[in-house]
Design a protein around this nucleic acid. Sequence first.
DNA 1: CTGAAAGCGCTTACAG
DNA 2: CTGAAAGCGCTTACAG
Lengths: 348, 348
Amino acid sequence: MKRISSNDIARLAGVSRSTVSRVINGYTNVPPETYERVMKVIKEYHYYPQVSARALSGKSTNTIGLFWVGRSRLAMDPLTSSYFMHVVDAAAERGYLVLASFIDDLTDSANVQKVRKIYMEGRIDAGIFVGLSNTEPLVDELLEMDKIVGIFDYFHEGEDQPHRLSSNFERDSGEAVIDYLYSLGHRKIAIIDGDLSRLSCIHRHESYMRGMLKHSLPLKNQWLAYGGIVEETGYPAAKQLLENSLDDLPTAICANNDGVAFGVYRACAGLGLRIPQDISVVGMDARPEGKTASPPLTTYYYDFQRLFASLTDRVIDTIEEKPDVLQADFIPGQLLVRESTAPPRAEA
Amino acid sequence: MKRISSNDIARLAGVSRSTVSRVINGYTNVPPETYERVMKVIKEYHYYPQVSARALSGKSTNTIGLFWVGRSRLAMDPLTSSYFMHVVDAAAERGYLVLASFIDDLTDSANVQKVRKIYMEGRIDAGIFVGLSNTEPLVDELLEMDKIVGIFDYFHEGEDQPHRLSSNFERDSGEAVIDYLYSLGHRKIAIIDGDLSRLSCIHRHESYMRGMLKHSLPLKNQWLAYGGIVEETGYPAAKQLLENSLDDLPTAICANNDGVAFGVYRACAGLGLRIPQDISVVGMDARPEGKTASPPLTTYYYDFQRLFASLTDRVIDTIEEKPDVLQADFIPGQLLVRESTAPPRAEA
DNA sequence: CTGAAAGCGCTTACAG
DNA sequence: CTGAAAGCGCTTACAG
């Protein structure tokens, strides 16, 4: 069963290949009658133009790469896997397909090479990255080769890079959380930071600090810790923080994100601290599991669907050379009060 | 910055394009010295052959499509998203990339058309499907066009279809669950079936029945129900089953899978039934959440990584025309006893 | 062992 | 409005 080509269609419709091509690409200079005739043959013979041939003669492949960076993929939770879906859906909406790769670690040059190869072989029109450090050399390398790169959570103040698009979290969420805890009466607040090579973790840290300073709250060393971005690293950090503070426990703990907050839950359970009676806990990102956790987790909600749709759309706008594409988008969020927070107990 | 082509490499290395091609494709009839010389230029100029040109001249694109069928994607849980990862990883292992699509519903011909298009445009060498009914016409259509299709949970007894590969669950898990409950002393067992258009649900149903018959256990109508394959549909089914059986409650409920079992949890909670004191519950598939559910869920574990690696490998073997590829693989599982099951209470 | 040439299936100026 | 021709960047018989 020989595959049918544009040549065959041309012959069957009594036109030239040029005209078949014009019909396929929806060019306007084809009279309706010719258009219909060609279209009929195309349908009848189930003809599909080969992407490789189209790509070779200069058309876009309508494919974007999705590069999922970092081992955290191993703990693929409902929230992060939703990112995936949002990108694929948003791309599909524009007629683009998504080529997915999981990249363990970009400090390994073999992995960098994998990404490079996918770009350079002409498989994709652009790439979208999740899980990058905010100073990833590969990004600059790609930009220098005139490639288009979309990044979740990445921003360099004041730089103009039309081929670098990013979607980010708003920058004031930490402050909003502190405001809220303060309004409940909390004065002794601990903070567990994330991985400060990531933009959002830096912003959260800054924003928490801003809130603490605004209310002149004490920043005790033993109430500050680094807990990474997942439960597994959040737990030991929280455990140590609490153990170091047994003489003077904080009344609330702010975690870099929900994963870390779940680690705080586990550490509190281990020490017999009840949430929120003995200590309040706040996460960030509103992972679905937080709703059914016990107690349900107070957190900060972001519309990730919107965030990834914006990123994907702007990447595609850039591929299609639309003018005035917004380089960096900051998505607002909002505090989501559930049951892991309460006023602190009156001191004995 | 003009992209470099094999022509340029040929010129720079003082050979013909044919030889460059031979080097790239690792053909043996190139003397080591020539090979090195060409390779050196390739590295030096960061040359990457264009896939579209290679594809057009007959090479494989080294890409497989992953078609995620069904709305259940909306509730992308950790287990099902791990399928994704397993396929991408297994493909990467063999040097293949994965083009991902979410397809809402194959009864909608527009969606069928999307799949067809991806295959026919020459984007992929083969496709892997998750979420198909066991009698999906598209599969046969694709096979007739000589396409390669890999399917999770799909099997037609006695058919020889070298281009249709599948990975499936073992067929006796239901019986093993009944044996276990019987050994605990249960005699009044309810069963919540899944979606009987899916192979695994049929097998589970059959296998549960086999176990029930083997032990001559009563199959009361009010102890049987259909609960779909997710929590949202499992809950109402379980609720109704229990409400219909208030005069004679079962002492154990077997769910088609863990999602449905979580629905049973919710229904039991609503009726004040304690698990396992008042009623035992068994799921299947060992979703990660089952471990931390309260109580931790007794279930049936399958090695999904192995299941999807096997599927992906056999699909690639078929692309590469390896001989004697196993068409259908049945992956064994094992009972995972946790705390949602206990002996039934002695009747008053 | 290696090169010249044909061919893969499209698109796109260029002419008319 | 439309066709003939060139070109995209590879691979692969075919000769030698």
